[in-house]
Amino acid sequence: MAAAAHFDIGDTHGLFLGSSNPVQTSSAALGWTSLFLSEQQEEPFEASARAVPDHLLVFHLGGPAQITGATEDERITTVVPPGGLCLWPANSPFSIQLADSVETLHLYIRSSVVNEVAASLGYHFPDGIRLRPRIGQRDELLEQLALEVRSVAASGGASTALYADQMALAIAARLIRHDYSAPPSPAAENNRGLARGRLKRVEDFVEAHLDRPIQLQELSLVGGLSVSHFVRQFKLATGLSPHQFVLRRRVDRARRLLAHSDLSLAQIAYSCGFSHQEHLTHTFRRHVGATPGHYRRSVQS
């Protein structure tokens, strides 16, 4: 099954490539497909950005900072407070002039994700939903979601991709609700959860691919549903989000290997899809209440 393309810095506006505002950290090496995140200390600059097919959210982590932003329809000069954001919609060029030094978080979200969530909410946009630009506004929920994505990226590892996909759905829903406050009534939906046969196929797929990153798009394809519909139906059926379910399966496999194999902790970590041994230890302790080493000694004694 073909995996979705990784969201890399080459898919962005490239605002900081070769500039005096180099990216300090990013999600480029994490294999994410729905989101791309970068964090940087921006010094005063001016730039014109070409249109790209995905949406860009810029959060000011410090400040205040004066900016002048312009789209094809308007030009605004304002002072952005800490926590303020700018939204530059997909397929729209813009220009930006930053007058003050400020730390920022850039978060790109695939327009395909936003379009799919809009459809699941009952909106019908044959050419894709159009978001409105924002310059210097506050949105505390979007800010908290972005900071959670930042925290996930900082934890590192390709195994964060599934959680990032789920965060993208929440961000997309918030963006849509902001611009379209009166959604149409969605079609009636099965409230019993994923059918048993579909759930079994998903469970088998997860078990067969625990040694590598698993993408939400892959699970939805196996389940035969759109991503947003799959997430809702899966949680109804299992009581867990796909990310939680996969993480539990990784921990369950680690428990079996710790009890019945002589593999090293590093080998077990990789065979269960954890990024590294420390990631296994942290996750295992949180779920089991003991470190992998202590657990192995207790069950093999």
Rank of each mutant, 00 (worst) to 15 (best):
L258C: 04
S19G: 14
V114W: 04
G128M: 08
H106T: 13
R177Y: 01
Q277D: 07
D139S: 13
L219E: 09
R130D: 08
R255V: 01
Q244T: 05
L263H: 13
T283P: 00
V23L: 08
A119G: 06
L175S: 02
K235F: 05
I96R: 10
I135S: 01
P213A: 14
P184R: 05
R249Q: 14
P126Q: 10
G62Y: 01
V114H: 03
S111R: 05
H282K: 15
F36A: 03
R256C: 01
S48Y: 03
R249I: 00
V206I: 15
A28Y: 04
L85S: 08
H260D: 07
T281C: 09
H6F: 10
T238N: 04
S298L: 07
F125K: 09
Q215S: 02
L225F: 15
T281Y: 08
D139C: 10
P184E: 09
A182L: 13
P242I: 05
E103M: 04
R130I: 11
Q41W: 08
L263N: 05
Y270S: 15
E203L: 04
R296L: 02
A237C: 07
A168I: 12
G69V: 13
A118L: 08
Q144S: 12
A90E: 09
S20H: 11
V288W: 07
E218Y: 03
D262Y: 09
N91H: 15
D127A: 14
C86V: 01
S301V: 03
H294Y: 11
H13Y: 01
L131E: 02
G62H: 06
A146F: 01
Q166Y: 10
A259Q: 12
H209S: 13
R296F: 00
Q24G: 00
K235R: 15
G156Q: 08
R198V: 00
L210I: 06
Y180T: 03
D262Q: 10
L141A: 05
R50G: 03
R232K: 14
R150E: 06
D179I: 09
R232Q: 11
A170C: 04
G156N: 04
A164V: 11
L141S: 00
S159W: 14
V222D: 04
H178M: 10
Q24W: 04
P186G: 08
T78L: 14
T238M: 03
P292T: 09
A118W: 07
A254E: 06
Q24P: 00
A47M: 05
